[in-house]
Simulated assay, not measured.
Amino acid sequence: MSFDLQLAGRRALVTAGTKGTGAAVVLALSGAGVTVLATARTVPETSPDGVHYVAADVTTAEGCAVVARAVIERLGGVDIIVNVLGGSSAPPGGFAALTDEEWFKELNLNLMSAVRLDRALLPSMIEQGSGVVIHVTSIQHVLPLPEATTGYAAAKAALSTYSKSLSKEVTPKGVRVVRVSPGWIETEAAVALAERLAADAGTDVEGGRQIIMKALGGIPLGRPAKPQEVADLITFLVSPRAGSISGTEYTIDGGTIPTA
């Protein structure tokens, strides 16, 4: 039996598409025959066949407007939106360290970028009667680390709830909305963090990885997820093979969350 994902000719927007998980999603989708527009604050000078880049800061309303215009001008519309963008720049120190400014940074990065792009692009998906939206959340919305990720975790929780509500609204109109909730992914930034923790603790990089896994309460699989593994899951979920999947959340964390 063929397992063709039937994605050839589709058009996709991928945020944070030049590094880590976003870059892996771009490559996976383009490899499946999708024409991809990827966003980031800075973009490569050259791009693979079938991949376009637009430089924009989608944590701002202005940046989201730039991306929405580029989708229409370069792709002529969109069939798939994968909002990978996320992260945190909040300082350690728990709730008391989170000023209003820090809270707004977390919300603009992890929630409002998706909200604004959906608001701009979903009407065209509804008009064509088809489309898929993937919002990348995080296991931290149910497993927050209070020392440093309260704002990030709360913003991702808001993204998850928003996504569920959105799915109820637009799935009857032909647009599927699915959440993907990763645990620790071994991106370039994660490797750099492990190296920094290792240096501080006087150990090697593997020791740094163990420090991170211990902070998460352990990963039964014994390692973080690879960006390609997350990208493969997303590529399946946006395909017609997953045509009856909407409104749910898929955790990919190596068993980190201790309950079902």
Rank of each mutant, 00 (worst) to 15 (best):
V51P: 14
E127K: 13
E62L: 04
A38H: 08
T46E: 12
A16T: 00
L109I: 09
V34T: 10
Q210L: 02
A148T: 09
N110K: 04
S130Q: 11
V71P: 01
A55V: 10
G208E: 06
A68D: 05
T187C: 04
G87V: 10
P224N: 07
G50N: 06
V14T: 05
G247P: 10
C64E: 07
K156N: 08
R116E: 11
T251H: 12
D200I: 14
S124K: 03
R209D: 02
P146N: 10
P146R: 11
V170L: 09
G217I: 03
L75N: 06
V115P: 00
L37F: 08
G9Q: 04
E102H: 14
L197T: 02
L143K: 08
P144W: 11
T187S: 05
S246K: 05
I245S: 10
L13R: 01
V142W: 06
V36N: 05
T59R: 14
Q210T: 01
D4E: 13
A231K: 01
R74H: 11
A198C: 11
L143Y: 04
H52L: 15
K173L: 15
A97M: 07
T18E: 00
A201L: 08
V178C: 05
T203E: 07
E147H: 11
G247Q: 05
Y162L: 14
G129H: 13
N110E: 03
S160H: 14
T171F: 07
V82C: 08
R196A: 15
I80K: 02
L166S: 00
S138D: 14
L7D: 03
G243C: 04
V43K: 09
R119M: 03
I126A: 11
G222L: 05
A260R: 10
S30I: 01
H135M: 07
T235D: 09
V43C: 00
G183H: 05
E188A: 14
I134G: 07
A38P: 11
V43H: 10
V230F: 00
T150A: 10
A198T: 10
V132W: 02
A199M: 11
A157R: 14
T149F: 14
L29W: 10
R179E: 15
A8F: 08
I252N: 10
A231M: 11
E127H: 14
T21C: 04
I212G: 11
R119P: 02
